[in-house]
C-alpha cells in the first residue's frame, strides 16, 4: 500500500470509467491493498447503485459520442457509396461523348416540338378568326355592310400576318438564345467532369501510395 491515498477526484474518474487505463490499474492495485479506500469506494458504489433505482424517466439521448459502432457503420456506408460513385464515374467516362450527343439531340427535339406546337396554335386561331369574319359578312344585311366587313377582314388578316412574322422572329431569337445557353452549360459540365476526374485520379493515386507504403512499426 502506498503512503498517499488517491484523491476523491481520482476515484470519481475511476468509478465512472473516465481515467486512463494505466491509472485505472494503479487504482485497482491500491484498492486491493488499502481497506480504507476500499470501504469508501464501496460506499460510493452503493450510492451509485441506489441512484439506479429511480429508473430512467425518459429514453436516453441518442448520442453520437456513445455510439461508436453507429459512427463506424455510417463511415463504412459513406466509403461504400464513394467507392460505388467512383466506379460508376470511371466506367461512364468512355461514354461521355455519346451522352453529351444524346443530351444535345434531346434539347433540339424539345425545342423543335415547342416551335411546331406554337406555329400550329397560331395557324388555328387565325383560321378561326377568318371564319368568324366571313360568317358575319355573309349574315350582314346590306351590300355596304358586307363591303366594310370584307375590308375589315383584309386589314385584320394583314395585321395577323405581320403579328405572326413578329412572333416567329421572337421565337427564333429565343430559340437561338436557349441553344447558346445550353452550349455554355454543356461546356461548364464538361469542365466540372474533367476536374472531378482529375481529383478522383489524384485521390486514387494517393490511396495507392498509402497502400503500397511500408507499415510503421508499432511502438
Amino acid at each position: 500500500m502506498s503512503n498517499t491515498h488517491p484523491t476523491a477526484e481520482d476515484w470519481m474518474s475511476y468509478l465512472y470509467g473516465e481515467d486512463a487505463p494505466v491509472r485505472h490499474l494503479e487504482l485497482e492495485a491500491h484498492l486491493r491493498a488499502c481497506p480504507t479506500c476500499r470501504n469508501q469506494v464501496e460506499q460510493w458504489r452503493h450510492s451509485m447503485r441506489s441512484l439506479d433505482h429511480w429508473s430512467d424517466v425518459r429514453p436516453r439521448r441518442k448520442s453520437w459520442a456513445v455510439e461508436p459502432a453507429l459512427r463506424w457503420a455510417v463511415a463504412a456506408a459513406v466509403m461504400l457509396g464513394i467507392g460505388i460513385g467512383v466506379g460508376r464515374l470511371a466506367s461512364a467516362a468512355p461514354r461521355s461523348a455519346q451522352l453529351r450527343e444524346l443530351v444535345r439531340m434531346e434539347v433540339d427535339a424539345r425545342l423543335n416540338a415547342a416551335h411546331a406546337e406554337f406555329a400550329q396554335i397560331l395557324e388555328r386561331r387565325q383560321a378561326e378568326m377568318a371564319q368568324k369574319l366571313q360568317a358575319a359578312a355573309a349574315q350582314a344585311g346590306s351590300e355596304e355592310a358586307r363591303q366594310v366587313l370584307g375590308d375589315y377582314a383584309k386589314v385584320l388578316d394583314e395585321q395577323r400576318t405581320s403579328d405572326r412574322q413578329a412572333y416567329l422572329a421572337a421565337f427564333r431569337q429565343l430559340d437561338e438564345r436557349q441553344r447558346a445557353e445550353v452550349g455554355n452549360l454543356r461546356e461548364a459540365l464538361q469542365t466540372v467532369a474533367l476536374n472531378a476526374d482529375d481529383g478522383l485520379n489524384r485521390a486514387q493515386e494517393q490511396l495507392l501510395e498509402l497502400a503500397s507504403s511500408p507499415r510503421s512499426t508499432s511502438p
Binding site: A8, M12, T36, Q43, W44, S47
Partner: peptide, 30 residues
C-alpha cells in the same frame, strides 16, 4: 468531481436504510 464525491457520500447517508450490506463503521478517506 469533488462535488460528485460529496454528493455520493451524502446520498449514502440519506439512503442508509437501503444499504443493509454496508459495514457499520466505514472509515472515511483521509
Amino acid at each position: 468531481k469533488s462535488r460528485m464525491s460529496e454528493a455520493l457520500s451524502q446520498l449514502g447517508r440519506l439512503l442508509n436504510p437501503l444499504r443493509p450490506e454496508m459495514p457499520k463503521n466505514i472509515a472515511p478517506l483521509p
